[in-house]
Design a protein around this nucleic acid. Structure first.
Length: 271
DNA sequence: AGTGCGGCCTGTCCGC
DNA sequence: TGCGGACAGGCCGCAC
């Protein structure tokens, strides 16, 4: 489900209820997620103060004095703040109960999400240490992206969705950024000019920043920690709009499959 | 080394 | 209605 804006929206929503709170108990109903939840999680978290809540790529990092909980929402996960007495439903896999009386509930039907624990710096964790730069940081710039692109043969859309190149650009925002930049998603990475990469870097930053501002995109089941959908959905120019009119030229939006992912573009506005 | 697939899961929707 | 198949916002690990 969530791409970077949805994860950031979740982080902002839960932070006031989590940071500075002490964990009273942890209830794990389903351990078998993308990776098994470590058996030590409950013991590690209990009685710990959550010092800070940060995001790296699509991972949420819950820092305590003893270590850090690393949480990924996968494709269908969400986090909500509820009061302690709220009955659990299907796929409510984990509750983290705070002394305040609130609880943080992890819900994930497809179980592609994960919860891990590390005693070390989470940024050194093997799932995180090799990731590319944050798209909204200065580290992600034209020189960086252009130099990595040379001699690569894969489609440019697949390239910008590779988290080792840049994190946080998922299937929706990849299509949207390429539309804004006027670049056809199937072009070979190594054959796109520097000028066009400059435009692409700017549009990746723009589309992600705007989506964060609007609370992310809801297609079917993304809801933030208040249970509200994201309002960027109405800003989508091409994603999920096959056959509808392009907002710039009124021609029909096309859909193709690229690396087994649905890809949307306008064959007139993107070349 | 870079690329492209299979697979992890459940839910939903579409066509027969 | 019921059933099979395709599809869904992520991403690791493997074979080539």
């Amino acid at each position: 489900m969530p791409e970077l804006p949805e994860v950031e929206t979740t982080r902002k929503g839960i932070a006031p209820y989590v940071v500075g709170e002490v964990v009273k108990d942890v209830i794990i109903r389903e351990r078998q997620l993308r990776w098994p939840i470590p058996t030590t999680l409950k013991r590690s978290l209990k009685n710990q103060l959550i010092r800070k809540l940060r995001r790296r790529a699509k991972y949420l990092l819950f820092y305590t004095d003893k270590g850090c909980m690393i949480l990924h929402l996968g494709m269908s996960g969400n986090l909500r703040i509820l009061d302690n007495k709220q009955a659990h439903e299907k796929h409510d896999h984990v509750d983290i109960i705070f002394e305040s009386g609130n609880l943080l509930r992890f819900h994930d039907p497809r179980k592609f999400g994960s919860i891990l624990w590390t005693k070390d710096d989470p940024l050194e964790h093997k799932l995180i240490s090799h990731l590319g730069p944050e798209p909204l940081s200065d580290e992600f710039n034209i020189e960086y992206l252009f130099s990595l692109s040379r001699k690569r043969t894969k489609a440019i859309k697949t390239f910008i969705m590779d988290s080792h190149i840049v994190v946080g650009v998922g299937n929706i925002y990849a299509s949207e950024a390429l539309f804004r930049a006027g670049i056809k998603p199937t072009l070979q990475t190594g054959k796109v000019s520097k000028t066009r990469y400059e435009k692409l870097v700017i549009e990746i930053k723009n589309v992600l920043a705007e989506a964060i501002e609007k609370g992310g995109t809801t297609l079917r089941d993304f809801f933030n920690s208040d249970g509200k959908p994201g309002y960027f959905t109405q800003e989508l120019q091409v994603y999920n709009r096959e056959g509808e009119a392009c907002n710039k030229c009124m021609r029909k939006i096309k859909m193709i499959r690229l690396g087994q992912r649905s890809t949307f573009y306008c064959s007139h506005c993107q070349s």
